[in-house]
Amino acid sequence: MNIHKKKQGSVALFFVGTQQGIKSFGENIQTLVNTLLLSIVYFVGVGIAWLMCKLSKRTFFAEKPRPEATTYWEPMDLKKRPMEEYRRQF
């Protein structure tokens, strides 16, 4: 009876182990593919955008303080808007 249970246990363990192994293998492949694809997107997409920004001298943020500036506050006017605007994710 006990031996039978033990055998059942080892068989179940084998399948669980195999399942975990396959899952882990799948995840590794996914990471690899993601890295590869995202690297391509980065060098092509982000790289081209960077080049265009360099040519047009556009920056997204200042990297150095501006001693001549009197304030670093940037004006904003965030107040109640029409309801539809809150349904947008941007």
């Binding site: 943020f61 200042a62 670093y72 506050w73 940037e74 004006p75 904003m76 006017d77 965030l78 107040k79 109640k80």
Partner: peptide, 12 residues
């Protein structure tokens, strides 16, 4: 109502 009038932006 709330009105936000000034901001400092990332990465600062």
């Amino acid at each position: 109502e709330i009105q936000l009038l000034g901001e400092i932006r990332f990465p600062h």
